[in-house]
Amino acid sequence: MARARVLIRPKEGILDPQGKAVERALPALGFEGVGHVRVGRMVELEAEDPERLAELCEKLLANPLIEDYEIQPL
């Protein structure tokens, strides 16, 4: 079994209101100078056939119209 981590994030250019909300909250907590916050998802999994992970991401874990994904072998 191969372990992998899949990072899924909103595509560049798509409004990410969660990221914006986090960004707006930071100055009130004393964290100045933090920008371009994007909130996504992380999925960890074990796969018998890591060759098929990209297909799995395209079909289920990410919606390629609105999200980018990145597969990181662990």
């Binding site: 798509i14 409004l15 209101p17 969660q18 909300a21 919606n63 119209l65 609105i66």
Partner: peptide, 10 residues
Amino acid sequence: PGALLRNEEL
């Protein structure tokens, strides 16, 4: 076609 995303104001 298309997709539905989180409301702008969350």
